[in-house]
């Protein structure tokens, strides 16, 4: 299939009408599941993700517990119906790799030594995948951790930058990801000015790489503010109750 796919319209817009530096519509909610200690739901375009945190709790099996800090367990997992061609149940190699990079990103920011000999478990479930799942996943996980009251240095938010027909775009859609020349997911803790997750799949020049970082930064700042808003909305005040 050597078809050339044109991913831009005549006026330079992307196929879904977005500008080069525009993200898809985002929705974030905290405290959406009842049984866990913290939870969040994030939508980015058609990508839909639940994240839940249990912990700190007893490490299982006990011999894995660390004497001076908590261990962080993480799982990035996709529902079979989350993608166009049904994904087999169980963990694929891709899910295992993404679990690792997300876990390492979150670990960087949590004060693990506050809870020796225990475990903090983070579960990310992708109910519908439409590109950007690992970055939206770490964004949701960070929210769920904050909801659970796990002490952290900062929240983290992530977004991907793609390169399509030579142009850098923020938050590639599934097609842009599929037919583009590069895809760079990145997650940051903005207040600390630190990157916690960074991968590149494809080819970029140094200049393009620097530009991509700046483009991502803008998206991440927007997501960060939405995270803070979602967390603070739990404190919304109520009206005066009816007095009998």
């Amino acid at each position: 299939m050597c078809e050339v796919v044109n991913l831009f319209t005549e006026d330079g817009k992307r196929l879904d009408g977005r500008g080069l530096d525009e993200m898809r519509k985002v929705r974030m909610e905290v405290g959406v599941l009842d049984k866990c200690d913290g939870s969040a739901y994030v939508e980015l375009g058609r990508t839909k993700i639940f994240a839940a945190v249990y912990g700190p709790r007893e490490a299982h099996p006990r011999h894995l517990a660390q004497p001076h800090r908590a261990i962080l367990n993480c799982r990035y997992h996709m529902a079979t119906f989350s993608v166009a061609d049904r994904k087999p149940a169980g963990m694929t190699r891709r899910e295992i790799e993404l679990t690792k990079v997300i876990k390492e990103g979150l670990e960087t920011l949590i004060f693990l030594d506050e809870f020796p000999r225990s475990a903090i478990d983070v579960f990310i479930e992708i109910m519908q995948a439409d590109a950007g799942t690992r970055t939206a996943g770490i964004t949701a996980a960070s929210l769920a951790l904050a909801d659970a009251g796990i002490p952290m240095m900062d929240l983290c938010a992530g977004i991907a930058v793609g390169k399509v027909m030579g142009k850098l775009i923020l938050d590639p859609s599934e097609e842009e990801d599929k037919y583009g020349e590069a895809d760079m997911p990145i997650a940051m803790a903005p207040r600390l000015n630190t990157i916690v997750l960074l991968q590149l799949n494809g080819r970029l020049t140094i200049a393009e790489f620097k530009e991509a970082l700046n483009l991502a930064r803008k998206g991440i700042e927007t997501l960060y503010e939405l995270q803070r808003k979602a967390l603070k909305s739990k404190f919304a005040s109520i009206e005066e109750p009816e007095v009998e």
Binding site: D37, G38, G55, P56, F111, F115, A146, D147, A148, G149, I150, P151, M152, M153, D154, R191, L192, L231, K232, K234, F235
Partner: peptide
């Protein structure tokens, strides 16, 4: 961190005994 004080949790600011505390919304 870097000579400044930051919040570690989601919560409400509280001043007591000349210190800035954060009362968490939830926590272990």
């Amino acid at each position: 961190y870097g000579g400044k004080v930051y919040s570690a949790v989601t919560g409400v600011v509280n001043f007591r005994n000349a210190k800035i505390n954060v009362i968490p919304a939830k926590g272990p």
